Simulated assay, not measured.
Amino acid sequence: MTDWFASLKSIVGRHEPGDDTHALPRAAAALMLELAVIDEGGDQAELDVVHDAMRRTFGLDAGELQELLGQAQQAQRQSVSLHEFTRQLRTGLAPEQRAELLEWMWRVAYADARLEQQEEHLVRRVADLLAVPHQEFIRRKLAARGG
């Protein structure tokens, strides 16, 4: 019985931020990377926005940024659901920070000068999972588009 409990605890522990100071930035990066690769594997303009967002929002230096994005990319590829990222972000960020993340996601989506249907759908799902109100969702979309 103890082995089963220890195993369960280690699985749950992998998905809890705990003392990992990069858990929230990694989750945010994973969501943005998911968006960047949704249309034909992503293009450099979208990836540049992801880098800019992580540098500005979380104040990461070049080395930290590369390491974190590598970890986020691995987490994004291994993920079976957006919930493991959005759950951390929903509880770990204030409402204004969640809305700011959504705006960065819109910037990623618009970076290649076209908005694909799958990109908009993903941003809508993330907004719902992060509990960003619809009015804020639209406001952030317009801000990212420059309107």
Rank of each mutant, 00 (worst) to 15 (best):
G70C: 07
S81A: 15
Q44M: 12
R87L: 09
V80T: 14
L33H: 00
V50C: 13
Q66R: 14
Q44Y: 13
G63I: 05
L89R: 02
R87K: 14
G59W: 09
D43L: 04
H83Q: 13
L68I: 03
A62T: 07
A75P: 03
F58A: 01
G41K: 04
D43K: 05
L69Y: 01
I38H: 09
L60R: 06
E46N: 06
E64G: 05
T57E: 12
H83F: 12
L65W: 15
V50L: 15
Q76G: 03
V80W: 11
D61I: 02
D61Q: 02
Q78I: 04
L82D: 15
Q76R: 07
V49H: 09
G63L: 06
F58K: 01
L35F: 08
E46K: 02
Q44K: 10
D43Q: 05
T86M: 08
A75Y: 10
S79H: 15
D48A: 11
V80Y: 12
L35G: 01
V50R: 06
Q73G: 10
V50S: 09
Q71P: 00
E84S: 14
E67W: 12
T57L: 13
Q76V: 01
G41H: 06
A36F: 10
R90I: 04
A53W: 04
D48V: 02
L65G: 07
D39R: 05
Q88F: 04
G70A: 10
L35D: 01
H51N: 13
D52P: 04
M54G: 03
